[in-house]
Nucleic acid binder design. Structure first.
Lengths: 322, 322
DNA sequence: TACAAAACATCGAAATTTTCGATAGGTAAA
DNA sequence: TTTACCTATCGAAAATTTCGATGTTTTGTA
């Protein structure tokens, strides 16, 4: 007989018998619990013992009692059974359309705080799901969805042609114009003209698919593929930038950065909606649906802690009253 | 049907099929590996799929390829199978007489260094064995063996009546008479008369079964149930003691303790053999046999690092030449 | 393009295993 | 001592597994 075939001899049912008998206290009680006849249990335990070549229960007394060997093997049998139950429940989840792994792609402009909190709840509810998280900017996000390397994305920029894509708004991110307090623009009044802006270097983000929609506003602009690097350049007074408020808020409060309020804008900040996007052809399972829900909630919670127009005005005045 | 009975539906053989097919690459190849017919594999996989309510293999191509769900469940199936194999190999070990758990009782006079090293090798060779380690002194050690609360003991004192006990020498421990350098006895010459010893307080160990063989040598002696406490009193110059050399060696070298050499003794140190003891009725399994072997080796290794008579003489002279 | 090789599904019959029901015999509590 | 409860055993019935044969699809090759 084949060596691997030996495993067939041992049955999950036999392990179940071992566990059930030890818990029920007797073969008969176990038989009743398992809705079988006593002789079936007797036969099952006996066959298990003969296969293992070892006595598991001492039947010399009124009620069977585990031998040392049985006592040693019992917890292992238990563990195998619970492992099998996990296997089955995983299979059931998969059968009901739950994703086994979800690849997400996130826009870098999304506040870092909302991400772990959104995923945390999901992780406890769907412990079997494997997560793969990418971070991209601009059109690279929808690109990943279209080519299929991620199943769901959260982005501030929808592609021009939404062919095959389904999207919905799940939150917003506030953008503001900022500049270092050491920069020439910081010396002027709070409200700047668009012309003033254009006469200095803009520090902006680079889109991989820049040819597709290259909306470079000034010919002197520098481009970054990484927001933290960009922020470093802004802090070094290399130019002005249009950045997510949450990213620069700490530096605004400390005074290292200052807000610019273009004269043609009604509000200091500009809201950009964040969309969830996915392929139309792939129906989202429960995990992705819950994920969208969680992100929406977290965005809402995050908005409540976000500085409003009034607070921004105060920061603005404070800067220029110094 | 009973809720627990659902587990019967899933078979270890089915999990084996899943794993084997995914490794062999085709149903036929798996059939060949498992020494069965192809239709058996086909039927087995199909029944597994219908039980789980989910397709595991995509058969639309020439060779079957795992679905995402199958890919997700495969490693779990593998893990369950290896767990089951461990279960079986444990059972086999038990069937061959290997102990599932071993309770040891150690004499406190045994050098601490030999113990972990003796057990370490055993732990890698018999990972399934559970260890329970007690520490006792004098007759309490054999007591534990006789009453069955430990299966094997290592002791320096054999009981008078060795009824039912089997013992063998596995090493030795050197004892010396010591006293604090601040004690009156330390001021005298190195060689002391037995009369001189008896006129001062002896700090000794207490035997729980003291009535059985209470060999108290002086009526002023103090008794301790703990060697480290005893050593503390010796260091505090409360009296002299007869202690394992390894226990006082560091303090001898630092000069805090001094050796006493009774005039009626030929050697400075006195060797006491260490015995392994066990019940005659209980045949030792491989673990206990190996354990005795390991202790014997470790004692031998420890002896090589132990100070000899010549070294002790040097310590003795050094003390009294100061 | 046609053919051959390789792979899986299906089906009925045989073989094996599991389960049941009844009975006999042992242990412990009243 | 009686009685209740427990397990082992056995034969028959039921269920499951396995085999062998056959049909269909995919894929590589002449």
């Amino acid at each position: 007989m084949h060596p691997l075939a030996q495993i067939n001899k041992l049955t999950l049912d036999q392990l179940l018998l071992l566990v059930t008998v030890s818990e029920a206290g007797s073969f008969s009680a176990a038989a009743h619990q398992l809705d079988r006849v006593q002789s079936t249990i007797s036969h099952g335990i006996a066959s298990l013992e003969s296969e293992l070549g070892i006595k598991l229960f001492d039947r010399s007394r009124r009620k069977p009692v585990l031998t040392p060997a049985g006592l040693h093997l019992l917890p292992q049998a238990r563990q195998i059974l619970t492992h099998v139950r996990h296997f089955q429940s995983d299979a059931q989840s998969l059968a009901q359309g739950q994703e086994s792994s979800v690849a997400i792609v996130l826009d870098m402009i999304i506040p870092l705080e909302v991400i772990p909190q959104s995923l945390q709840a999901l992780q406890t509810q769907y412990p079997a799901v494997q997560w793969l998280i990418h971070t991209e900017m601009l059109s690279a996000i929808s690109q990943r969805i279209i080519e299929g390397s991620s199943q769901i994305g959260f982005t501030g920029m929808l592609p021009r042609i939404k062919k095959n894509l389904v999207s919905e708004v799940i939150g917003k991110v506030d953008f503001v114009y900022v500049v270092s307090h050491q920069h020439a623009l910081a010396q002027a009044s709070a409200r700047v003209t668009r012309h003033a802006l254009e006469s200095y270097t803009q520090l902006g983000v680079a889109d991989r698919a820049v040819s597709d929609l290259g909306q470079i506003q000034t010919d002197r602009s520098w481009q970054f593929a990484d927001l933290s690097m960009l922020l470093g350049f802004v802090l070094a007074a290399q130019g002005w930038a249009f950045l997510p408020l949450h990213l620069v808020w700490a530096d605004l409060q400390s005074g290292r950065l200052q807000i610019l309020w273009p004269q043609d804008k009604a509000e200091i900040r500009t809201e950009f909606p964040i969309h969830s996007i996915r392929l139309e052809s792939e129906r989202p399972g429960p995990v992705r649906q819950q994920l969208i829900q969680a992100f929406r909630q977290q965005f809402k919670a995050h908005d409540r802690q976000t500085p409003n127009q009034k607070t921004l005005m105060q920061v603005l005045k404070q800067e220029h009253s110094i």
